[in-house]
Amino acid sequence: MLKTKNRLIKDSLFGFLLVLPTLILLILLVIFPVGYVISLSFFNYSSGTPFFTGFTNYTELLFHDAHFWLYFVHSLEYVGIAIGAGFIMGLLVALSLNAINRFKGTLRSITLLAWAVPPVIASLMWKWMLNDTNGVINDILFKMHIISQPVAWLALPNATMVVLGLVHAWTATPLIMVILLAGLQAIPAELYESAAIDGANSLQKFTMITYPLLKASVLSAVMISSIFAFRTIDIVFTLTKGGPGDATEMLVTYLYDNAFRFMKIGYAATLSVLMVIISILMIALLVNIIRPKRNE
């Protein structure tokens, strides 16, 4: 008896020792920087020696800095457009892939390509294709008689955000698709068979079987891809750098500018903390909206 107890203690010690190196590494790499950024957010740290200012940065950002709220809205627009388009595309592709049984591996490989291509490369490519003088997009649309004049896609004050969102959707669709496809394949085929016997049409099958059973996957897909979209800087940085004017300036680019262009380190740290809080709120909100109701 004593021996087994001893063994159990040794077991749990061994388990903890396996985890310990990673724990130490993550404490050094996460806890310390997070603590540091939080403390910096209470300092005025731009030029000269930093000095403690309490919540000044926070009140400044939240109540006096009109940019903050505008760029916050821009960030939400970006996430909304990107994930809206990416989700519709991802769902259509997942449903289609689920319906076709041939060439499964090849078809999936092609859909995954857009995920694996580095986001920077994807945005460089789109920047070149959207170019107003030599770009291929204008040429295609011109040949299809959709436009009669070359369009400067990345300099439209009102529509460039849509272009950015769609480029992000290009990179985000595969992950959404893969998650939804996994969810679709977990739905037992028998349900559809018995629904068919009962005379259900395709739409009824989708609303009565596919959608309710897919809810968990939808939650994962939307949540993960929204969080990624909110923090993505590669695409806006490469395509517009926030322009034209500040039409595509978002929290990520504002943070970058404060830290590395305006050299307002303390202010940037405050923005960082606020971005983390917004991320956490986004997760909580999404979990609540889409979570399958337990009591149903």
Binding site: V37, L255, A259, V276
Partner: peptide
Amino acid sequence: SRIFPPISLIVP
């Protein structure tokens, strides 16, 4: 620990 957007830890 992955909740933190990478850009929010860039300063520290």
